[in-house]
Each structure stands twice: as structure tokens, then as C-alpha cells.
Amino acid sequence: MENLKVWLRKNTSTTILTVLFLIVLVNKDAKAWLMRQVASTGILNSRISEAKEIHNALPKASYADFTVKNENGTVINFSDLQGKVVFINFWASWCPPCRAEFPSVQKFYNQYKKSPDMVFLTVNLDDNPDLGKSYLQEKGFTVPFLVPSGKIPEGLYSGSLPTTVVLDKKGVIRLHHKGLADYSKQSFYRQIDHLLKEKS
């Protein structure tokens, strides 16, 4: 026992780092916190493409029939969103990168939720939607809780969580980002403002 105490005194920093590593390894919120610190630098963010840069945009017809539904069972069809900037975020409560970016998604939502030309589709992909609802309630998030009501087109989501897509007012994909990002940056808001000023 004495040898262990001596070793711990000599290796305090190693012991602390090992304990922190183990906490991050097993705790989803700790993982999310660490990822959030990395995301907050902005190095993981993608940029919204200029319209002239779009060469391989997904044809609108391939996702115009995609629908989601809210907690009340009301169905939202993509074809009804023409003339709006649409922010789509595919997420799940068990996904640490989703948890890491969700505070920034909430801040972004708070910033633009009153804009008549902006639509938020935060689409939960938990096998059991109640887990997603519980997560939002536990954390105090107020973003719309939506689930797919049909097959998700591959052009929007191909299996990576989180995945974020931004459509312009013409329904063209201007951002398609797989993985963690920070959506509470002023640089991102400026890009969204630019999209909101574009004509449909």
C-alpha cells in the first residue's frame, strides 16, 4: 500500500489524466463536452457554398417527397418549404457528437426561430423516439422534435450522425456536413443572412 501511495505521489499528473480519460471514455456527456471544446474553435465547420459553386446539387425531385412529422403527428413535406431557407439536422440522443453540437444548434435556433423565411428540421433518428424527446427535455432544448415519416433520401442522409444540410430558397443544397460542427458562430450567421436575402 505504501508503494502505491509513493507511486501516486510521483505520478500525480499521469493519474489525473488516466482518471479523466476513463471518465470521457464512459460518460456520454463528458465526451460531448470534450468534443464541444474542439468544435468551438470552428475548425470542423463547413462553409455554405455560393450558388455558382453548386455543380452536383441533388435534384429537388429526389427529395421533394421526403416528409417528417412532429410530436402531434403533423406531417411536413419538403415540397411545401419552397421559398424558405431550410436547416436540417439529423441526430440521435446516444450520439456524442450530436450531443456536443446540440447547444450550438439551440443557439442558432434561438437566433432565427422568428424569421418567417427560416425553417428548422431537427430530425431525431433514435430507434425509440421517446429517448430523443427525453434528452431534449432533460437538457432544456426547445428545437422542433421531428422524426422521419418515410425513407430518408441518401442525398440528404447516408448514415453518419450528426449530418446537417442547408437548403436555399430554391431548394438547392448549399451545405452538406457530416459530423460535428458549431452552428453558433457569427461567421455562420452571416452566411445564413446571405441566404435569407437571396430571392426564391
Results as ranks from 00 to 15, higher is better:
residue 88 I to H: 03
residue 54 I to P: 01
residue 16 I to E: 01
residue 68 V to E: 05
residue 42 G to V: 09
residue 112 Y to H: 10
residue 22 L to K: 00
residue 112 Y to T: 11
residue 30 A to I: 01
residue 56 N to H: 08
residue 59 P to E: 06
residue 62 S to I: 04
residue 47 R to W: 12
residue 100 A to Q: 02
residue 55 H to V: 12
residue 35 M to Y: 14
residue 89 N to S: 05
residue 38 V to I: 15
residue 35 M to V: 11
residue 147 V to G: 01
residue 88 I to K: 06
residue 44 L to Q: 11
residue 14 T to C: 07
residue 87 F to I: 08
residue 113 K to R: 13
residue 101 E to V: 04
residue 9 R to Q: 13
residue 39 A to V: 00
residue 27 N to V: 03
residue 80 D to E: 12
residue 7 W to N: 07
residue 90 F to P: 04
residue 68 V to L: 03
residue 10 K to S: 13
residue 72 N to Q: 14
residue 75 V to D: 08
residue 73 G to E: 05
residue 59 P to G: 05
residue 123 V to S: 06
residue 65 D to Y: 06
residue 136 L to C: 06
residue 3 N to G: 12
residue 1 M to A: 15
residue 73 G to I: 02
residue 115 S to K: 15
residue 61 A to T: 07
residue 25 L to P: 03
residue 61 A to Y: 08
residue 9 R to V: 07
residue 112 Y to E: 11
residue 78 F to N: 10
residue 35 M to P: 06
residue 106 Q to V: 03
residue 79 S to Y: 13
residue 25 L to D: 02
residue 32 A to F: 04
residue 37 Q to R: 15
residue 38 V to A: 15
residue 55 H to K: 12
residue 120 F to W: 14
residue 65 D to A: 07
residue 111 Q to G: 10
residue 144 P to G: 00
residue 55 H to N: 10
residue 95 C to L: 01
residue 33 W to G: 00
residue 81 L to K: 04
residue 10 K to P: 04
residue 142 T to Y: 10
residue 77 N to L: 13
residue 85 V to F: 05
residue 5 K to P: 06
residue 49 S to M: 14
residue 45 N to T: 09
residue 83 G to L: 02
residue 20 L to H: 00
residue 136 L to S: 07
residue 105 V to M: 05
residue 132 G to K: 08
residue 68 V to K: 02
residue 82 Q to C: 08
residue 130 D to L: 09
residue 52 K to V: 08
residue 71 E to Y: 05
residue 41 T to Y: 11
residue 129 P to V: 11
residue 75 V to S: 12
residue 53 E to F: 09
residue 41 T to M: 11
residue 54 I to H: 05
residue 37 Q to M: 13
residue 18 T to I: 01
residue 116 P to N: 10
residue 93 S to E: 05
residue 33 W to M: 06
residue 39 A to K: 08
residue 81 L to P: 00
residue 114 K to I: 12
residue 99 R to F: 05
residue 97 P to H: 02
residue 64 A to C: 03
residue 146 L to H: 02
residue 36 R to E: 10
residue 60 K to L: 13
residue 146 L to M: 04
residue 51 A to S: 15
residue 122 T to F: 09
residue 118 M to F: 14
residue 114 K to V: 13
residue 45 N to Q: 08
residue 14 T to D: 12
residue 117 D to A: 11
residue 126 D to C: 03
residue 143 V to K: 04
residue 58 L to T: 07
residue 20 L to Y: 00
residue 23 I to H: 02
residue 21 F to H: 00
residue 49 S to V: 12
residue 34 L to N: 09
residue 98 C to P: 02
residue 106 Q to Y: 06
residue 22 L to M: 07
